[in-house]
């Protein structure tokens, strides 16, 4: 809504200064390229641009040529719409609502695959770093074996440590010191 108001207020001074051919207020074009409209009133005599393949051409056109196309389409659309050819219809739709200007798609086709490949590569790099560090790191301490920890349990029972709630208490179900597999 804010953008809409700004577009409208931006369009108002233009309308008062430019010629009668440009009195048309248009959301689709006014927000897309307001500069274009300013520079256009002099280029009404520019060479006509072919409308048949406007989708491919549109990105390469200069602002003046785009304005010519706008004017061409404006006159074409005043005719009976049943007389319009498919190319003219496509051109009219593409220029007004095609994927250019503010309607450019955020992602190109194939972007998802690229994102997936790069993410997978980064996860792979992380895994390689993990394995590399693990291969050069020293062995775990000798107390981290099952045998040692079971022996620790025996010693704890001999010494009757933690007789209330811990390993030496009645009906103890826990694992005591055993944590390695």
């Amino acid at each position: 809504m804010q953008a809409l108001r700004l577009a409208r207020s931006a369009a108002t001074p233009l309308r008062s200064t430019t010629s009668a051919a440009l009195t048309r207020r248009c959301l689709a074009t006014a927000t897309a390229n307001p500069v274009e409209v300013v520079s256009s009133s002099t280029s009404a005599t520019a060479a006509p641009v072919p409308l048949s393949n406007i989708e491919a051409l549109w990105g390469k056109l200069t602002p003046e040529e785009k304005q010519t196309v706008h004017e061409q389409l404006e006159t074409i659309q005043q005719k009976d719409w049943k007389e319009l050819s498919l190319e003219e219809k496509k051109a009219a739709y593409y220029v007004a609502f095609g994927p250019h200007g503010p309607r450019t798609p955020v992602s190109q086709p194939g972007d998802n695959l690229k994102i997936f490949a790069i993410t997978a590569a980064l996860v792979g790099v992380a895994g390689a770093i993990y394995l590399g560090i693990k291969s050069i790191s020293p062995a775990p301490p000798k107390t981290m074996t099952r045998e040692w920890q079971e022996a620790s349990n025996e010693r704890a029972l001999e010494a009757k440590i933690e007789p209330m709630t811990g390993i030496s208490s009645e009906g103890y179900k826990g694992k005591g010191f055993v944590q390695s597999k």
Binding site: E74, Q77, K89, A92, V95, A96, F97
Partner: peptide
Amino acid sequence: ARRVNDYATAVR
């Protein structure tokens, strides 16, 4: 849209 001669808006 027909009155203001804009085909694209009618399609839209």
